[in-house]
Design a protein around this nucleic acid. Structure first.
Length: 834
RNA sequence: GCGGCGGUGGCGGAAUUGGUAUACGCGAUGGAUUCAAAAUCCAUUGCCCGCAAGGGCAUGUGGGUUCGACUCCCACCCGCCGCACCA
């Protein structure tokens, strides 16, 4: 008897798919397009090619490929492309360490990824492959930059930015985690630099509202983005400092507490601070405080547990609602990059202000009554952040604060002292990087003309080759003098190229559009082609991109739509986030030595086993722990399927095996019914949140049932036909996960190519059986089971149930006070002792 | 602190609307096959009592609703993830 040899089988089918160009897809305007077929765009997040693919990649593409296959077999024309997010820091850091040019390491890694994806048998239309580091691609990344520049959505500004001293580059807000660089973990510093920004805040409201346009995104991802955008409604109120002749606007979400403002706080970075205290007694103390804060790690400042610190400025501002003069302070609990960098402090109704007031012995003035203002605690229930009737607030006294809120804001506006305002936590996206391995920002600095965009017909601005990649606080590109020095496109005079490159998140914010028209040399993509496929029907990737990549892609798509390049305003209609695979309960890392190399497992058990295993570990949106025994178990199951098929295949393929024989009887009917059950179950679970683990379990059950009944069925012709049908069906259902084995089994038993065969449909006649088992409960406890005819009437079932041996014993000597009948499921007798 | 997710056998996990808790897989035990092993096939496998028939107890904890609760409600405990001095 021969054995299941996945490596041979897989190689053979991979060659077939390559030769037949099986996954080639043609959209509108392309040769071979079939307008009558529905289209689906199935997309996994493109990989960053560094080293070798890891299990996270395996899971992502196994899940995505299963979805792609399932869609194809349900009649869709499926767009399923692949590419590489190939600019970025690791290749550059490697270059600094080893001297190897980033292009070489990147090219090598792409080759490895590309080879392994083929060895995994992922059904990709390779004719659409893109890599973001190629001039053919980044030419259009640059084009998009210029489009945004022209539309006013890209701008240059001097701003305090987060600077990583280790990587010697600025970072986006999003790349700073707990005050540390996301990549290397070094504590970041603040620097004032001229940088390029994309105006993401201009689209903040639409980024929130358009969640309504999406079909199915995980709720927590939407929540994370909402929190990140952090929209708060409130009011802007102006506090005046007469002495200094300055107006200080503040943003507050609680204008209803204005009467309770007893002091006023500026952020240490506030631009007016220096002038306010210059030449005063407070100057020295303030300067010392500001210097101390600026030397501190930014992470330390976000620790809300530490005591409040600050320094009085010796100046006052006037509370516009009651004319009271209140003292000014500088304190590091006020942040410059949220609101206006100044706050009105209402200690009675804000925890931080309250803490500060206690620390500095400042007055606390209650203006909203709490549930129990006379609470026995020494602080009388303060700070009270809830709602209640207003007090000490002039003519608003007695009104509920919520109800008075709009009146107060309207009054401020009529007095010219403020008005309604909306504030966002979201900052504009800082896109420039002082790094080499990225797309050059396509502008020129001219002494005469200022910033001049590189004309479109001169794109791409090609990244020059350089010798020294080490960061020096400015871009390594500065050293490429022949490249930097250029004639101004506008006046022809001496000018210098911009030497910053773009954040790689810009590259990956539009790649899904390039797949649709990868060879286009006149535009990033043809609008008609993009409109035909977009938005992506199913996007698949890790939750770690829940905020950054997904938000940026949404922003860029909206901008392109606004500029008339695209119809859709949302890139991804459905999002699926896969859970992380761990090993021994811990995140995999090279330092822990608990990594899993997909290549090893593909070598030992075959790609089908590895792919099916990652889909079987548990629900794919949750994490799971990788075990070798688990892979072996799945491998055993696939081998079982192959073996029973191979035993049945002696007489060669029979196209009839694709159909269930009519009206099977006895064990043949049992197996046929199991096959129908499996089809039904697999189809439902596939579409229900991609519950692949139970889909695979259903196929396992079908195979187990085939083994259980095989001896009885192999003997006669009709039985054998059902057996062949059942095994062919198992292959058909497992095909999205184990496409090679499925192709092999199908070819042996039925003939032809499984991936071209429509997804099976269950025969309803075989789905329901003639008799059903009814559970008999007494007082809610299962006491017996009876077989009754499907659809038997209530009184008949109850009579049978009462007579069931064990049930009868429990009914004996009691009075039945209630009978519950659930058709097809159970009866329950409620008995009271007599 | 705020937001989200989760807690079911020795382990990963199943359980359509409230209706047989523990599907499927792993592990374990026994058997068949074999000179032997591997592989394979078959059987058993939540815990406790019992020779058995059968009975009792079990879905993080404590209550509640219901004929019936892993599922719904209330109050807790624990774990993971995200955000966090955001005015």
């Amino acid at each position: 008897m021969s054995r299941y040899e996945p490596r041979e089988i897989e190689r053979r089918w991979q060659e077939t798919w390559e030769r037949e160009d099986s996954w080639r897809v043609a959209g509108p305007g392309e040769e071979g397009h079939e307008p009558s077929r529905p289209r689906a765009y199935v997309l996994e997040m493109l990989p960053y090619p560094s080293g070798e693919p890891h299990v996270g990649h395996l899971k992502c593409y196994a899940v995505g490929d299963a979805i792609a296959h399932f869609r194809r077999r349900n009649g869709y024309e499926v767009m399923h492309p692949m590419g590489y997010d190939s600019f970025g820091l690791p290749a550059e850091n490697n270059a600094i360490k080893t001297g190897e040019p980033p292009l070489e390491a990147t090219t090598r890694s792409i080759e490895s990824f590309s080879r392994q994806f083929r060895e995994w048998g992922i059904s990709i239309d390779w004719s659409r492959e893109v890599a973001t580091h190629t001039p053919q691609y980044y030419r259009w990344t640059q084009w998009i930059f210029l489009q945004l520049l022209e539309a006013g959505l890209a701008y240059r500004d001097r701003a305090p930015v987060q600077w990583c001293p280790q990587d010697a580059t600025v970072l986006a807000n999003e790349q700073v985690i707990d005050g540390r660089c996301e990549r290397c973990g070094t504590e970041v510093e603040t620097r004032n630099l001229e940088q390029w920004f994309f105006r993401t805040t201009a689209l903040a409201d639409r980024l929130l509202e358009d969640f309504d346009l999406l079909d199915s995104w995980p709720e927590h991802v939407v929540t994370m983005q909402r929190n990140w955008i952090g929209r708060s409604e409130g009011a802007e109120v102006t506090f005046r400092c007469e002495e200094a002749d300055l107006d200080f606007p503040v943003f507050t979400t609680r204008p209803d507490t204005l009467f309770g403002a007893t002091f006023f706080v500026l952020a240490p970075e506030h631009p007016e601070l220096e002038r306010l205290v210059a030449g005063t007694e407070a100057e020295q103390a303030v300067t010392e405080y500001v210097n101390r804060v600026s030397r501190e790690a930014p992470g330390a400042r976000s620790d809300s547990d530490r005591p409040k610190t600050g320094v009085a400025l010796g100046k006052t501002v006037i509370n516009p609602v009651n004319g009271e003069e209140i003292p000014m302070f500088v304190a590091d609990y006020v942040l410059m990059d949220y609101g206006t960098g100044a706050v009105m402090a209402v200690p009675a109704h804000d925890e931080r202000d309250y803490e500060f007031a206690r620390e500095f012995g400042l007055p606390v003035s209650r203006v909203i009554e709490g549930e129990d203002p006379e609470a026995e605690s020494d602080d009388q229930g303060l700070p009270w952040t809830g709602d209640g009737p207003m007090t000490g607030s002039d003519r608003f006294d007695g009104q509920n604060n919520r109800e008075a809120y709009p009146e107060i804001v309207a009054w401020l506006e009529s007095e010219g002292r403020g008005g309604p305002a909306v504030n966002y936590r979201l900052r504009d996206w800082l896109v420039s990087r002082q790094r080499y391995w990225g797309a050059p920002i396509p502008v020129v600095h001219c002494a005469a003309c200022g910033i001049v965009p590189v004309p479109e017909d001169q794109l791409p601005v090609v990244l020059p080759e350089i010798e020294d990649y080490a960061p020096k606080g400015k871009s390594p590109l500065e050293a490429a003098t022949a490249w930097v020095e250029v004639a101004c496109p506008s006046c022809g005079g001496d000018a210098r190229r911009e030497t910053d490159t773009m954040d790689t998140f810009v590259d990956s914010s539009w790649y899904f559009l390039r797949y649709l028209d990868p060879g286009n040399e006149a535009a990033p993509f043809d609008r008609a082609k993009a409109d035909a496929w977009m938005p992506v029907d199913q996007y698949i990737g890790g939750v770690e991109h829940a905020i950054l990549h997904l938000l940026y892609a949404r922003f860029v798509v909206k901008a392109l739509a606004d500029l008339g390049h695209l119809e859709t305003v949302e890139p991804f209609r459905n999002l699926f986030t896969q859970g992380m695979i761990t090993r021994d309960g811990a995140k995999m890392s090279k330092s822990k030595g608990n990594t899993v190399s997909p290549a090893d497992y593909v070598e030992r058990f075959g790609a089908d086993s590895a792919r099916t295993y990652v889909c079987f570990m548990g629900p794919p949106d949750r994490g799971g722990d990788w075990t070798d025994e688990g892979v072996e178990g799945v491998n055993r199951f696939l081998a079982r399927l192959w073996r029973i098929a191979s035993d049945l295949a002696s007489e060669g393929p029979d196209p009839g095996a694709a159909e269930c024989p009519v009206d099977p009887e006895g064990p043949a009917r049992e197996l046929a019914a199991k096959a129908m059950w499996a089809i039904d179950k697999a189809t439902r679970d596939f579409t229900r949140d991609f519950q692949f683990n139970t889909v695979i379990a259903a196929v396992m059950e079908l195979v187990n049932e085939a083994y259980r009944l095989r001896d009885e069925l192999e003997a006669d012709g009709p039985g054998r036909d059902v057996l062949r049908f059942a095994v062919a069906t198992a292959a058909s259902l497992i095909q999205p996960f184990a496409p090679h084995l499925a192709a092999e089994v199908w070819e042996m038993l039925v003939g032809g190519w499984i991936w071209e065969v429509p997804w099976p449909e269950a025969d309803p006649a075989l789905l329901s059986s003639e008799t059903v088992e009814i559970v008999v409960q007494v007082n809610g406890k299962v006491r017996d089971r009876i077989e009754v005819a499907e659809g038997a009437p209530e009184d008949e079932v109850l009579t049978l149930a009462r007579g069931a041996e064990n049930a009868a014993r429990h009914l004996d000597g009691g009075e039945v006070v209630k009978e519950v009948f659930v058709p097809g499921r159970l009866v329950n007798f409620v008995v009271r002792d007599s």
